[in-house]
Amino acid sequence: MKPFDYQRAHGLGDAGQLLVAEGAKPIAGGTNLLDLMKLEVETPTALVDVNRLPLGGITPHGEGLHIGALVSNSACAADPRIRGQYPVLARAILAGATFQLRNKATTGGNLCQRTRCYYFYDLSQSCNKREPGTGCAAIGGFNRIHAILGASDACIATYPGDMAVALSALDATVEIHGAKGDKRMVPVRDFHRLPGDTPERDNVLEPGDVITGVVLPAPPGGTQLYRKVRDRASYAFALVSVAAVVHLEEGVIASARLAFGGLAHKPWHDPRVEALLEGQAPSDALFDEAAALLLDTARGQGSNDFKIPLTRRTLKAVLREATGGTL
């Protein structure tokens, strides 16, 4: 770990000013940032501790909820309103990491979780995300956990989290406090970026930005599912995950909100798939069609080719379960 100035932010404005400085990074739970700093994948020159900012608590917000950026993953998943009205979110959070990590990891920090790409983590390997312009060793290497959708020639990394996948299905919004004191609302679906030519940027945050919270829309009801496929029964990143919020009315899919983890540089959301399903009676043929549409641009990198059939099968499982079907 490189030496850094440890600074504590005492207010939002204060935090913004400290974070505008080149090389400054905010730290909340630290479970991902310190992991990367020990390896010197992350080398902030100043670490701004935002833990004492008043960003805790889950409060009513219109018909929905406002989750403070510093609410721990554990507290969020344990909140009766989240568990009762947004079970897909509770389930997704509980699918990720461990109780120990979730006790520290925060809502804002978890959105900023970086990829688990092996090559990103290994300083001896080239990585455009870590060091722009050096190349992507994952392409042509071992890429079992890598992207099949939305990847670029510069980067095939995936966003590894679970929480944001559920937030994407719920169409939640990220509340951001800018360095100039401005507040902006960014849909979770637009918060993370595709890698393109600038894979070093995971999301749309600008220097000095502080995530202050996440806003959930009104409880969507319906059947809410989060399904995660992984190599171990617990404590493993998703090979593929699916978050689903499905309404069935009189035998017809009235609405289907779907998001996918493990497939791309961001939680994957494809409105075409939702549009296809809506207004249709559930059937295996329909689900196959939905999977085909979802994956029509999917491309394997070798070791992750299996994710294409795995996604197809997992989506089918989720849609069947959500619509009362069985195997």
């Binding site: 688990r116 092996y118 983590y121 290994d122 001896s124 071992f142 190599d231 171990r232 029964a233 990143f237």
Partner: peptide, 25 residues
């Protein structure tokens, strides 16, 4: 253990990616 055939480096050199069984397994 996964080795990169191009340079022989061990790709999964930590406990997050070399999967020993956890309690739930």
């Amino acid at each position: 253990l996964v080795f990169d055939p191009r340079d022989g480096h061990l790709v999964n050199h930590d406990v997050a990616e070399y999967h020993v069984p956890v309690n739930a397994d």
